[in-house]
Amino acid sequence: MRMDELLKGAFQRLSSVSDTAQLDAQLLLAHVLGVSTSYFYTWPEKEVSAIDVERFYTLLVRRELGEPVAYLLGQQSFWSLDLEVAPCTLIPRADTERLVEVALTVLPKNKVARILDLGTGTGAIALSLAVELPQSTVVGVDLIEEAVALAKRNAIRNRLDNATFLQSSWFDALDACEPFNLIVSNPPYIDPDDEHLSQGDVRFEPKSALVADNHGMADIEHIINIASNFMAPDAYLMFEHGYDQASYVQACLIEAGFVAVESFQDLGGNDRVTIGQYSVKK
């Protein structure tokens, strides 16, 4: 079958289940053939072998059932990185890049800092900061052993040696005698009863990385209550959170004694990142 005919049929099949049906089809076929998507515009009449057609249709059926393209490909781009992804953790999303951007506004590139990423998953945030702050040391922790192994592979994949990854339930495996200048986290923040958990890509992502008690706020509250024990003077704590949670996160930070509390919007104009600075009481 010709590539253009194969892609046309795939687009028709995916158009009812994906807003990016054409791109999805191209990415899946490019993955099967080991080419870039630009290849399809150069050689649209190229014949695809029966074996590759079968492999493509296998992926197509999985995508029709809603499985995320990133899981089907086993990779996802984030910041300037090429990351391996797997169902043991969340797929890095563009909105999370906002957390990286905000972090870079509080830590100059020439600063030698210690940075902690709580709930690191693929290592996306930790490794992005390691790229941009090469003189700093970045530590990423995750409760899931498979996620820690995945983050370590991503560090090797992107040739980064200033980031290390540990298995830990938040701060449990860390030494308070080695404080951090910046703590970042994209923790679970979705209400367990949120209807969106049964829709779209998140159906295939681990609920443990998405859901938190107390209307999605339990893990953020836990981190805020403990974080100061692991922070250097004037260090920053920052979170990604839900679009409607900024005011509550701000209130929790202020109650815990943080200053310079502020929220930042994502590309869609929603409050997405909230930060606070640790102030040592004199």
Score class of each variant (00 low, 15 high):
1 M>W: 05
2 R>D: 15
7 L>P: 02
8 K>T: 15
10 A>L: 08
18 S>W: 02
19 D>Q: 14
22 Q>E: 13
25 A>E: 08
31 H>Y: 05
32 V>L: 08
34 G>F: 01
34 G>E: 03
35 V>L: 03
37 T>S: 11
39 Y>R: 14
39 Y>A: 13
40 F>H: 04
41 Y>T: 10
43 W>M: 11
45 E>K: 09
45 E>P: 04
49 S>K: 02
50 A>S: 15
51 I>A: 15
51 I>N: 15
52 D>E: 14
53 V>N: 00
54 E>Y: 05
56 F>T: 07
57 Y>W: 11
58 T>V: 10
59 L>F: 09
62 R>V: 02
65 L>T: 08
66 G>V: 12
68 P>S: 04
74 G>P: 14
77 S>I: 03
77 S>P: 04
77 S>M: 10
78 F>A: 14
78 F>T: 03
79 W>P: 06
79 W>I: 01
80 S>T: 15
84 E>Q: 12
86 A>K: 05
87 P>L: 13
87 P>A: 10
90 L>N: 07
92 P>I: 06
94 A>C: 07
95 D>E: 15
96 T>P: 10
103 A>V: 05
106 V>C: 09
107 L>N: 02
111 K>M: 15
111 K>C: 10
112 V>L: 07
113 A>D: 05
116 L>M: 00
116 L>N: 02
117 D>F: 04
121 G>V: 03
125 I>P: 05
125 I>H: 00
126 A>N: 04
126 A>Y: 09
126 A>T: 05
128 S>F: 01
131 V>Q: 09
132 E>T: 04
134 P>V: 04
135 Q>Y: 12
144 I>A: 10
144 I>T: 14
146 E>S: 13
148 V>H: 07
158 N>I: 03
162 N>Y: 00
163 A>Y: 02
163 A>K: 08
165 F>M: 07
166 L>I: 07
167 Q>Y: 08
170 W>C: 02
170 W>G: 03
174 L>Q: 13
176 A>Q: 11
176 A>M: 05
179 P>N: 11
183 I>F: 01
183 I>A: 13
185 S>L: 08
186 N>P: 09
190 I>Y: 05
191 D>L: 00
192 P>F: 03
198 S>C: 04
202 V>A: 01
203 R>V: 13
204 F>L: 01
204 F>C: 10
206 P>L: 00
209 A>G: 04
215 H>F: 12
217 M>G: 12
218 A>P: 11
224 I>L: 01
228 S>R: 12
233 P>G: 00
234 D>I: 03
237 L>G: 06
238 M>S: 03
240 E>S: 01
244 D>H: 09
245 Q>C: 12
250 Q>N: 12
256 A>M: 01
258 F>H: 00
259 V>M: 07
260 A>L: 11
261 V>E: 06
266 D>W: 08
267 L>C: 07
269 G>K: 05
270 N>F: 14
271 D>M: 05
271 D>Y: 11
275 I>D: 02
278 Y>I: 01
279 S>C: 13
280 V>G: 04
280 V>K: 10
